[in-house]
Amino acid sequence: MNYGKRIFLWIVLFWIGSAQVFAEPFVQGGPIGSQTSDGYDALGPVVEQPIEFPHNTHAGRMQINCMYCHTYARRSNVSGIPRLDKCMGCHNLIEGVKDRPRIKKLFEYWENKQPIPWKKVHDLPDFVRFNHERHIQRFYFQEKRPVREVCGYCHGDIASMTTARRVKALSMGWCVSCHQKDHLEKAGSTVTSHGPNDCWLCHK
């Protein structure tokens, strides 16, 4: 009888415990959106680029805004890979680094009139549509957050990497976990709203 009573009690306790989780997915880790471990961190593969582009120099040390090179991010779905003349626009004038192997390679492409065959690091499935424009407009221009934070939500701290590597899962649950949070509507305002939850916003 005691045995039965004990099992009975265990069942009740288990039930009460499990009732705490109502229709929420299982996600481990700390607060979502933090750039360290949050349960959604999934390092992507190391992608070998034709030129080992030092993001840490450009975005980190030089403090160049991400959108100086990735110009389409604020006005289209894709952020865009800068054209070769964008690189040359500066590097033609920077004499001090012209003898470095990476810059030499850059000039080689320029003289051969060849585009640099960059490889995709953040690749979403074909049925997913991610709009850079709306995110940048909302968080950078409307809410006036620092660009490294805004881009870093999804891309990680690129300013500390050389060639970029995917550090977030970019999975659906990861997207939703941010969309369901309330964000400020404008810098300084107290009105908040969550991201859209319509399937057709991201799926095409």
């Binding site: 989780v21 229709a23 997915p25 996600v27 999975s171 659906m172 649950g173 939703v176």
Partner: peptide, 8 residues
Amino acid sequence: YPNERWTW
């Protein structure tokens, strides 16, 4: 089942 995608 409570999946990562938040879908049911």
